[in-house]
Simulated scan of single mutants.
Amino acid sequence: MYKSLVFLMLLVIGQVVQADECILDQATRVSNNLELQKKYPGSYLIEKNFILVVPVENGEVHINIGGCTHYGITIELWTKNVDRYINEEVFMDQILHLAQTYSQGKVDQAKLKKLIFEKNWMQPEPPRRIYFFNYYETGTFEVYKRKEGQHILIGFSAYS
């Protein structure tokens, strides 16, 4: 529960920081996204070109790499296929697929596979699908499934 509160506080604080107060270079972030967009035909940018949206068979994948004061990566599958990800094994397979296909090498695949295989995580509020993986010594690697309007989001967010 404590980690959930800390995460939410950091999220709110991060939202308050304005783009012109960023420590990290936002122009490079947008430039990187424009290059990344070329890799995924049919993709498009949203949120001031900070998030790349890639249409996929069962929804769309949102890719957010970079940050303002902390460097991080968030990758989410937005889908309306609610029943497909009820099973934890199928859910974790989707997380591995998202990391392998869209993280641009920012997530160590072998390490993530090992964490999933060993169930090396903390789950503060079962049966909700939120997991804090022991990926970094300092930082957060959160894996989640949550409802957002008519969509189900399956994804992860990592920052250090």
Rank of each mutant, 00 (worst) to 15 (best):
R146E: 14
M9R: 12
Y40P: 00
N49I: 00
Y44Q: 09
F133E: 00
P127S: 04
R146G: 06
C22Q: 07
V17N: 11
I65G: 00
V107Q: 04
G155A: 10
G67N: 11
I46V: 14
R146S: 10
Y131E: 03
L153Y: 03
F117D: 14
F91Y: 04
H151E: 10
G155L: 05
G66S: 07
H62G: 06
N87Y: 13
I23Y: 14
E118H: 12
N33F: 04
D25L: 01
L77Q: 01
S157E: 13
V90T: 14
E142N: 08
T74D: 14
E89V: 06
Y44R: 08
N87H: 13
L24N: 14
Q100T: 00
L8K: 10
G42P: 03
V107E: 04
M122L: 11
G59V: 02
P126W: 03
E76Y: 07
N33G: 04
G149Y: 02
G105D: 03
Y135F: 10
E142C: 06
L24D: 06
E35F: 04
P126F: 02
F133P: 01
L24M: 13
S31F: 15
I95S: 05
L115Y: 10
Y159C: 00
H97K: 12
K3T: 01
H62S: 08
Q94R: 13
I95Q: 10
F91C: 02
T69N: 15
E125L: 10
E21M: 05
M1Q: 13
L36D: 01
L115C: 09
Q150T: 14
Y85L: 06
L52N: 01
E118V: 08
Q104F: 06
D25S: 00
R129W: 13
R146H: 11
N64G: 11
I46P: 04
K113T: 14
E35V: 07
G72Q: 00
L5G: 10
N58T: 05
D83S: 13
V56A: 00
N58Y: 01
R128K: 13
A27K: 13
L8R: 10
I152D: 04
S31G: 12
G59D: 05
V61G: 05
K111N: 09
N87W: 12
D20T: 01
Q150G: 09
L77V: 00
N32T: 07
G149P: 03
V53D: 08
D25W: 00
K48I: 08
S43T: 05
E35I: 06
H62D: 10
L77M: 01
R129V: 12
H70V: 12
Q94H: 04
T28H: 05
L98I: 02
N134V: 05
F91T: 00
E118I: 07
T140C: 08
I51M: 01
G67T: 13
K145Q: 14
G67E: 10
L11P: 07
D83W: 09
V17I: 15
G42W: 02
I13C: 11
V82G: 03
L115N: 06
I73H: 05
F141G: 01
L112E: 02
G72V: 01
K114R: 14
G59Y: 02
R128N: 12
K38F: 03
L45K: 03
Q104S: 07
Y44K: 10
I73E: 02
K147G: 12
E148F: 14
K39E: 09
N134R: 12
L24Y: 15
W78H: 14
Y159L: 02
S31M: 12
K147V: 15
H151K: 07
G59P: 02
